[in-house]
Simulated assay, not measured.
Amino acid sequence: MKSISHVQQEMLNRMELHRELSAGGAAIKPALQLDEPGQPGVMQSFTDSLHAVDAQQHQAAQAMNAVDSGRSDDLVGAMIDSQKASLSFSALLQVRNKLSSAFDDIMRMPI
């Protein structure tokens, strides 16, 4: 499973490629063929990121429940897991917003 920062970097690289192609007037492949066969696409990368963030949130919830029920006394670890999950979720939302904005920009481009 890829880390959220790795997926974000991949998405930013793809967005930069799209920006360069559109600015240079180069011929752009149709959107359905943009990803090379056998390579994970943007949707797969985003889905992997979503699952990674979900796993972090479940881990944080389990750590907090363990502290609440008295099974663990690692309050600091539980709080760190909680902050990591929160930060990952915020980063995922920012990437989603960037992708949505990029899609809107593409849709507004004249043909």
Rank of each mutant, 00 (worst) to 15 (best):
L21A: 05
A102S: 12
A23Q: 14
I28Y: 00
R14S: 13
E20V: 12
H51D: 13
D104S: 06
V76R: 05
L92A: 06
M79A: 13
K84H: 10
A60T: 08
A52M: 11
D73S: 13
L50K: 07
Q57P: 00
L32E: 11
E10V: 06
M1G: 14
A102F: 07
H58V: 05
R19E: 15
P40D: 09
L99G: 14
V95S: 09
S22P: 01
Q56H: 02
A55W: 02
G24E: 03
V67E: 06
A60Y: 07
L12S: 11
A27H: 03
K84Q: 12
S3T: 15
L32K: 09
R19W: 13
Q59T: 13
E36V: 09
V7N: 10
S82C: 03
R108K: 09
Q83L: 08
M64Y: 03
A61L: 07
S101G: 11
L50D: 11
K98R: 13
A31N: 01
V7M: 08
I4K: 04
Q39E: 11
A52D: 08
I28P: 00
V67P: 05
A66I: 02
Q8I: 09
S88T: 02
Q62G: 11
A91W: 03
F46R: 14
I106R: 08
E36R: 06
I4T: 13
A60I: 06
I28M: 04
L12F: 11
I111L: 07
Q56W: 01
M79Y: 04
S90G: 06
V67S: 04
S45I: 10
A23L: 15
M11L: 15
V53F: 04
L12R: 14
R71E: 15
D81P: 04
A60G: 08
S22Y: 09
Q83G: 02
I80V: 15
E10T: 12
T47L: 15
S72M: 09
A55S: 07
G25C: 00
A91F: 08
Q39V: 13
A63W: 02
K98Y: 10
A63F: 05
P37S: 05
S5W: 04
L92I: 02
D35I: 01
S100Q: 13
Q33H: 07
R19Y: 15
D74C: 06
V42W: 12
S5M: 08
A61F: 03
E16G: 14
A27K: 09
K98A: 14
A78L: 07
S86C: 01
T47Y: 14
A55G: 09
G38H: 04
S86P: 00
K29C: 03
A66G: 05
H51I: 08
S86V: 02
D74L: 03
Q9W: 05
V76D: 11
H58K: 11
A60D: 07
S3Y: 06
